[in-house]
Simulated scan of single mutants.
Amino acid sequence: MEEFALLRRLYRNMAAAAVAVALPLAASADDDQLSVSMLLAGQIDDNGFMEAGYNGLVAIRDELGAQIDYIDGVKPEPELLAAALRELAADGPDLIIAHGGQNNQAAETVAAEFPDLKFVVVQGAVTGPNLSSYEVLQEESAWLAGAAAGLLTETGTVGHISGIRVTPGLKGRGGFYHGLMHTNPDAKFLTTFAGDQDDNELSYRVASDEIDQGADIIFTMLNAGRTGAIDAMREHGVFQIGNVRDWYPDHPDVFIASAIANVSVPGLTAARDLAEGRWEGGQIVKIGLEDPDAVSLALSPDVPEEVRSRIDGLRQDIIDGKIEVSTDYDGPELTY
């Protein structure tokens, strides 16, 4: 196992070196070149959260001329995540980004073991002398998505599907629920954390069950497992609200909206802060609707103008502090 780990690290370093050669000569020849490593607890081609994080790492390379490295495909278990972080830390990069709130515990542990390195958790909630969290407030776009669902539902029943119970997902679900209640307090809300972000058979079954219970709009916070939900909704003529990015161009017959939370932004923002001397440990940096490149609600062209106008007003109310986005939820859940 140790030989395999060494070979894997050698391969990754060779790949990173090859990337650096492709960068401008000044960046690759600079002894002070920024080095950034990233841990992704999933696949970089999942069409969702992990791919967005990887895109942020690529942007760090392209914008800042940084040398980059990453590990993906790690199961979201604290021991495995900690081991991967230690592997990245052994190379001594300037910054290690743990992408996703499922890394909170592992990052807190490993950052304490490597006090001379800087760590960031994207969508995290942990801090330390050499550890900060950078978070896009996806609960704000989720709140707007819930508000839109409340205005658009015809059955009066709205669903939500997610996989693992991590803090950002729980906050997104809570934000969506409160947005729904704001515009349609009589709506019935169906929700589940089914246990897996990437299982298409599971997401198809869960979506079908919520549709059978009357849901005509379902908010999905999934990664590679989104395809199963899309298939179920297409079969039944039900609309989906996506997350992370705008899904309408890919499936215009299914997506009525997308609660955009561009999670490529936090890692890039952290790297910019480090490169420009602004990075500090011990803080949580929050990025919300005031930055539309990071957080927004994209609506289908089929959404009526009166709904668009109402959502625009609610967005401004959140920015102005007239509406506080609550993220709590203690109601019933579907179990599988």
Rank of each mutant, 00 (worst) to 15 (best):
E108C: 04
D69S: 11
A66Y: 12
L40C: 05
Q67S: 15
I44T: 15
D116G: 12
L40M: 14
F49M: 09
G101P: 11
E77P: 08
D46V: 04
G48F: 01
R86W: 03
N47K: 15
S37R: 13
R86G: 04
G56T: 00
D91N: 07
G100V: 00
D62A: 04
I60G: 07
E77F: 13
I44L: 15
Q67V: 02
A111K: 02
A112V: 07
G100E: 05
I44A: 10
L81P: 03
G65D: 00
A111T: 01
P78M: 00
E51D: 04
R86H: 05
N47Q: 15
D69C: 12
V110D: 09
I96M: 10
I97A: 02
D69M: 11
A89I: 03
E79G: 13
G73K: 07
D45V: 14
D72S: 10
G73L: 00
I71R: 13
A89H: 08
A112C: 10
L40G: 03
G101M: 04
N47E: 02
D94V: 11
N47Y: 09
I68S: 10
Q105E: 12
I60Q: 11
M38R: 02
A111G: 14
G100H: 05
A66D: 10
D72R: 11
A90T: 09
L40N: 04
Y70H: 14
D116Q: 15
P76Y: 03
G101R: 09
